[in-house]
Write a protein that binds this DNA or RNA. Structure first.
Length: 300
RNA sequence: GGUACCGUAGCUCAGUUGGUAGAGCAGAGGACUGAAAAUCCUCGUGUCACUGGUUCGAUUCCCGUCGGUACCA
């Protein structure tokens, strides 16, 4: 079994992960695996700031534009496929780069995710209906009686968390807690974690500029093409949902663009919260590439 | 020039029948194992435009000043 090294390049949106990773991949003569929860959708290109076709030619990328927004694709699928992929890549590369802004997806690759049964559409719909009819309190009561252990620790204001727990309860007749082992899956590769560090104001400026760039590249047209599919989960995404609101007449185009910038900043903030709490990350200024490379070499 | 209304948190505004004030947004911090670019939680002291008056006490009432808006000339 190969004992390769996975180099994680994380950071908030618009922090320059793509360029940084390409440089790193070239220096190490290897490839890039994306850990981004939107860039794998082939229908969404401009709004997800996926690598450009030129960039894709520079370095071989995986997990980019390989899924359709019509597919249901979860973190668990992502973890399974990416681990299998890494297995292959480490046959030929001593190091592989994992780049992305989705903390949950990165963690799934690095630590694994507890195996859980699939949820049928019937169960999913049942839970959805329960929420629609009974509201948050109905979910809270159900979780409290079906899985008191989870109820005691979960954020009971968060309908998503409660719904997920109920889905598992209904699907299996067992508690959600009983599946949540939260044990790290041993991986047969080493992991080095890097994150890109920006001063908040500068990052926000970059976000604003990048949104303008996206509009210049035809984000409006891309969104208009996808508008008929707007109810798909994959399209509940910054850069698209705001333009859908404009198409619906809920705001002006100018307001929609401003909202994209704002929501992107909020997203970046949440990403930083996620990465900050993981003390395994080593933070580097984007211009400190050589320093980062040196650090990587010292760890391999 | 006259009249009316407005001037309160970074922004939009609410409010105090006189006892020094609070929402939304922004911003900050946080949570988060199959919808995660999703979803959710926490955090609000500011010369209540300025000056003087009435009052035990004024951001609140009154006079004036300045700024804004509207209408009339």
């Amino acid at each position: 079994m190969s004992q390769g090294t996975l180099i994680v390049v994380a950071g908030p949106t618009a922090s320059g992960k793509t360029a940084f990773s390409i440089r790193m991949a070239k220096a190490l003569h290897t490839v890039i695996v994306s850990a981004d929860s939107r860039q794998f959708y082939k229908e969404m290109q401009i709004g997800t700031a996926a690598p450009t076709s030129d960039e894709l030619l520079e370095v071989k990328h995986y997990n980019i534009h390989n899924i359709s927004i019509n597919d249901t694709y979860t973190v668990a699928d992502f973890e399974k496929e990416t681990i299998a992929l890494l297995e292959q890549l480490f046959q030929v590369h001593a190091t592989v780069i994992l780049t992305g802004g989705s903390g949950l997806f990165i963690d799934a690759v690095c630590q694994g995710i507890d195996p859980m049964p699939d949820i049928t559409t019937e169960v999913r719909q049942k839970v959805g209906q329960q929420y629609r009819e009974g509201g948050l309190s109905a979910l809270q009561q159900a979780v409290q009686s079906l899985d008191p252990e989870y109820y005691a620790s979960v954020d009971i204001q968060n309908p998503r968390r409660l719904q997920r727990a109920l889905e598992i309860c209904y699907q299996t007749g067992m508690t959600f807690s009983s599946f949540r082992k939260r044990q790290s899956e041993p991986r047969n590769f080493n992991i080095i974690k890097l994150a890109l560090l920006w001063e908040r104001d500068l990052l926000y400026d970059r976000i604003d500029r990048r949104v303008d760039q996206m509009m210049g590249q035809g984000l409006l047209e891309e969104a208009r093409r996808l508008y008929p599919l707007r109810h798909l989960n994959a399209l509940n995404t910054v850069g698209y949902k705001e333009l859908f609101a404009f198409f619906d007449g809920q705001c002006t185009l100018e307001e929609a663009v401003a909202q994209i910038k704002l929501n992107t900043r909020h997203y970046a903030k949440r990403q930083m919260t996620w990465f900050r709490k993981d003390h395994g990350y080593n933070w580097f200024q984007p211009e400190a590439f050589e320093e980062a490379l040196q650090y990587v070499h010292s760890k391999i």
